[in-house]
């Protein structure tokens, strides 16, 4: 399979200032690839989370790889606030574009369809809307009495980065019911995937696997990364390493603690 390469090589194919979309902590975050980006000392990335970020966001911000972050929230879940993110936003060293979950989904869906924008209910009267100069409010052109509605521009990232349990020898990727990965990959110009393993088969031949498969037309690179979501989990395969996440949350309270943690854990391949 010509798409098959290494995690390090996928990271090499990401350039500074790239617009990257990453999944939320519960949905196959390609952490091994995130660590590879940090080792490459990427600069000025624009990172969108679809729709919530966690430890990947905090690591990339803490390591200085990010110019702008966009998400509905950044949190370490039960481990608490994301410390490097909070400090960077408070100091103004990283720009954070506040959004709301369905706005990110809708923007990506617009790109999926190749249309320039998508309407969304809600938002009117919120400061989330007030501070977004790229969002517009119109009245429903089909029914003036329906009142105002918000329009969101299509979101088209350069690259979607995802992890999955399995890819087949044709480059198709099985994501199961984690269909936000499908939306992200449809919306982005290209998708790089890390997988637990590559198997000799064609996932599209069996309807049972085909329904949960991202076809290879969206995929421009696949690398094997065993345990590739660590310290996060891979639903149905392995649990998040909550001890490691708690230890990170504590260490990352200070910049020096963060650097120390990264030195110890950032070389996982």
């Amino acid at each position: 399979m010509s798409l098959l390469t290494t995690t390090g090589d996928l990271a090499e194919k990401v350039s500074d200032k790239a617009f990257i979309v990453l999944p939320p902590d519960y949905s196959n975050v390609p952490m091994a690839l995130v660590f590879a980006l940090i080792r490459r000392k990427m600069k000025d990335l624009y990172i969108l989370f679809a729709p919530i970020g966690g430890i990947a966001a905090d690591l990339l911000v803490g390591a200085g790889n990010v110019k702008t972050l966009e998400a509905a929230a950044i949190t370490l879940g039960e481990a608490g606030l994301a410390p490097r993110f909070s400090e960077a936003v408070q100091k103004g060293t990283t720009e954070f574009r506040d959004s709301t979950c369905p706005a990110i989904h809708a923007g990506l869906q617009a790109s999926e369809k190749g249309v320039p924008f998508m309407p969304l209910r809600g938002l009117i009267g919120s400061d989330v809307l007030n501070y977004r100069d790229d969002w517009k409010v119109i009245s429903n052109p089909f029914n003036e009495k329906d009142g105002p509605i918000v329009l969101l521009p299509a979101i088209q990232p350069d690259i979607a980065l995802i992890h999955a349990p399995v890819a087949d020898s044709c480059g198709n990727v099985w994501i199961g019911k984690r269909r936000e990965l499908m939306t992200m990959s449809h919306a982005a110009r290209k998708t790089f995937v890390t997988v637990e393993k590559v198997q000799e088969q064609n996932l599209l031949e069996d309807d049972l696997t085909a329904a949960g498969t991202l076809p290879n037309m969206y995929v421009e690179g696949i690398a094997e990364a065993k345990n590739g979501c660590w310290p996060l989990g891979l639903a149905g395969f392995y649990q998040p390493d909550s001890d490691a996440i708690n230890a990170y949350a504590k260490a990352a309270e200070t910049d020096s603690g963060f650097r120390e943690w990264l030195k110890r854990n950032g070389n996982r391949k």
């Binding site: 950044i74 959004s99 369905p102 809600g122 938002l123």
Partner: peptide, 8 residues
Amino acid sequence: PGSFGSAY
């Protein structure tokens, strides 16, 4: 963390 889905 941020507004999550609340604005909707």
